[in-house]
Each structure stands twice: as C-alpha cells, then as structure tokens.
Design a protein around this nucleic acid. Structure first.
Lengths: 232, 232
DNA sequence: ACAGAACTGGATAGGCCTATCCGGTTCGTT
DNA sequence: AACGAACCGGATAGGCCTATCCAGTTCTGT
C-alpha cells in the first residue's frame, strides 16, 4: 500500500507529514485548474508542473491518474447532485427542470474536465459513479414532476438528459474558448423542443443498457484504465 | 518531391508503376474503412496493416497523415456538397432543409472519420476546406428559402447548422456503436425546435469569426499539423 | 541536536504515435 | 534475359504519454 494511505472518503488513515499534506493540497488545486482548462487530456506532467512538485510526488499521492481525477471532481459531483436537489425544490416543476438543464450544462462548459467526467464515466472512479447514479434517480423524479404539469412533452425520456449532455459536450469541446457561449443557444433550442405539445413524433430513445455501455467507452488516451473484463 | 508525384487534383504527373498504383488504391480503401471505424485517431500503422503494406509505403504515397485524410474524404466531401444541392432542388423548402440536416448528420454518424473532418476542419487540407465553404454558401440559400415559406423560425442562423454538427458529433462520439441511432432522436428534437413559430427567444448565435476559429482547434494528437503561426 | 522514518524529484522504463532510412525486391524496358 | 530505376517494408528515430526507481532531502519525535 502507498504511504499515507487514505480511506475512500478522504479521511486520513494515518496523518500525513506536514509537507506531504501541503503538497497533496497543491496537487489537487493544480489538477483542478489544469483539468478545467485542458480537459482530462491534460498530462500528469503538466499537473505536476502547475503544482510545483515532481512527477513522482504526484504519482505517490495518486498512484493512477483516475484516482487524481476522482479526488478532483468529487466535490464538483456533489454540486451536480445538489443542482438536481435544488431543481426538485423549485415550486414550478417546469422551471426547475429547465433550470437544472441549464445549470448542469453550464457546469460542463465551465470545466472541460468535468464535461469529460460526465460523458465518459470512466469505470474506476466508483465513488463518482455512485453519486452520478443517485443524481440520475433524482432526475427521473424531476422529469415525472414536469410531465405532470403538462409543460414537458409526454415522450420525454430520462435518457434524453444524457443525450443533452453528450450534445452539449460536443459543442463545448468543439467551440472551446473561441465561442464560449455557443452551447447556450443549442441548449435553449433543445429545451424549447422539450416543451409540450410535441411538434411531432420522435425516434425511440436508445436502450438504457446501450447508453450505459456507450458511456463506458474509452476516454482520452491513458485514462482508459481497467478494461471491462472479457467475459461479456 | 516524392516519386510518382501527383497534381493536386489527383491526376498523375508521371504514371505510377503498376504495383505502386495498386498499393495506392489499397491504401485509400483501407484508410476509408479504418478512419470510418475509428475516426481520425486511427494510427497510420493500423491503416498500413489493414492495407497489407509496410508503413514506409504508406508514408511514401502520403508524406503526411493529413494528405491521406484529404485523399480519403475528398469524395465524401463531394457527397456532402451534393446533399445541399439535392436539398436546394427540393420543391418543398422546409422538407429540403430538414432532409439536408438528417442526411448530413447521418453521414457523420456513418463515418467517424468524416465527423472529425467536418467538425475540426484541420487546416492543411485546403481542397476539403474550399468545398466545405462552398457548401456553406449553398446552405445559406437553403436557409433563406426555408425562412421564406414561414416554416423555419426567423431567428435561425446559418451558424446553427454548424452547432448542429457539433452537437451531433458529441452524441455520435459518445454513443458510438453501443447506441448507433441515438443521434437521430437529438437531431429530430433540434429540427422541431427550428420550426416556426419560435417558442421563445434564443441567446445570440456565436460570432462568425469565433466559430471559425473554434473549428481550427487542434484535432486528435498528431493530426494537429501546422501550428497557427504566432503572429496573432 | 540528532537519528531515522517519511517524503521528494529527476532519471528512466515502456507504450503508442508520426515520420524517416536504407538494404532488398519487383517492375518494365531493351 | 538482364539491367537500372522504381518501389517495397522492417528497423529506427524522436515525440508525448503514464507510471516507477532510487539517491538525496526534509520533517518529526526524542
């Protein structure tokens, strides 16, 4: 086991030495800005440089890149889950629904790394995945509530929110800093298309399993991590 | 100059030796399937393997990866341009407009490499770029025609088609083979949102220049090609 | 103040990538 | 048939990546 091992929830098993604690914090801060700017493609070396530590130090604290990613985006995932909770608390279900979409997509746009995390789910970060799944359940309730008011079209499917994220990720990735608000227009268009009454039928939503499998696909080079065992 | 050099339009300057000609054809065919399956990330080595030739042979025929890409997607770009022409010929402007979007997005979904080409425009393939720009002009006419009938919302902007492609690319990339038809649903939703009367105002479209700059951003590693000179 | 453990960071391994070199092979022409 | 040019492909260079090794440094309890 690595020295200064920690429980999954981040509490220290044995307290780190003061300098180690400081470096750990620096690394996480550096990774936050670096991943946010460059997405998960950002190299570990660039994170180490930004943090002002050696590469080895980085890898001792986070033996694999995914662990660093998990540590960095843990709180952002909380904020994401909170957004659903806020939306559920909104007295106007439709307003809550649309507000949630805008908030969640804004988070994607503000942090390229988070956009990657949301759409590609890479398998190992169990903690992140769990919270993402909880958020998904809450989203289903949010959708049902919005449908009940008649503002949301009846054939809206929870998986459509995943598709929105994928589409948004496409726009955000492609436009980047050059047109940082372009995504807002696409999201606004999509939201208008969600509004009842439907203007026409839609192709069936993808199978739930298929969509989930799609999200497991390999992320950026090197992050691919554990291959999804061959006994499928 | 490389042996068997060719004019930009593909006609032979000096005829190739028979085996060279055969290999060249094999390479293009192999690249078509490989890029189509794996996108432009596909390595040159994998193309060579698929073609049954050595790596050196591949690089002799196409001294840089971009040249191979240009050679492969030249005809597909023609088909893309044709799609606009077909749409313009449609007696029902709205039907032509929506049909074009579906066709173009289907091409993206059917060929990952082409999706990459469309959204990231990498700079060097001048020939491809030119045709893409011509297609863009035709698209503007298509849009104006559709607006004139009143079916297309007035605030639709030509750049929205670019955004559609980016969003579609996001869905296609994320879902891949796992949910190969998911994009249809998103595109259908977007088309419904384009239909007049508009259900609400939209954020302004991105600046034309900004969007163009966005498309110049680096593609997959190694394809980045000529850096956009520093005298900006 | 001083051991010794905890921690650090540069050098390095090993992978995949684009692109090149060069000795061997095949074509096509006489 | 036989010769020269054209062409081939495996080995190799050199880049960037994740991840590891180990000699040197810094913290901490006594």
């Amino acid at each position: 086991m690595s020295p200064g091992a920690r429980h999954p929830d981040g509490t220290a098993a044995q307290p780190l030495r003061s300098d180690a604690e400081r470096n750990r914090a620096r690394i996480i801060a550096a990774a936050r800005t670096t991943f946010g700017r460059d997405g998960l493609n950002a190299s570990m070396a660039s994170v180490a440089r930004e943090a002002g530590v050696g590469i080895a130090t980085l890898f001792r604290h986070f033996p694999a890149k995914e662990e660093l990613v998990a540590a960095v985006f843990s709180d952002r995932m909380d904020a994401y889950a909170d957004a659903v909770a806020v939306a559920l608390a909104d007295p106007d279900p439709w307003h809550g629904f649309t507000g949630y979409i805008e908030t969640a997509c804004a988070m994607q746009a503000a942090d390229y790394g988070f956009a990657d995390v949301l759409t590609m789910t890479f398998p190992t970060a169990k903690a992140l995945e769990k919270r993402r799944d909880e958020a998904y359940e809450a989203m289903v309730r949010l959708i049902d509530r919005a449908k009940a008011t008649g503002r949301l079209r009846e054939d809206f499917d929870p998986s459509d929110l995943v598709l929105v994220h994928m589409a948004n990720a496409g726009v955000v990735n492609a436009t980047g800093d050059a047109a940082p608000d372009a995504w807002r227009r696409v999201v606004a268009l999509l939201i208008q298309s969600f509004e009842a009454p439907a203007r026409g039928p839609l192709p069936d939503p993808p199978e739930h399993d298929a969509l989930y499998r799609a999200m497991l696909r390999a992320g950026p080079a090197g992050v691919t991590a554990s291959e999804p065992d061959k006994s499928s």
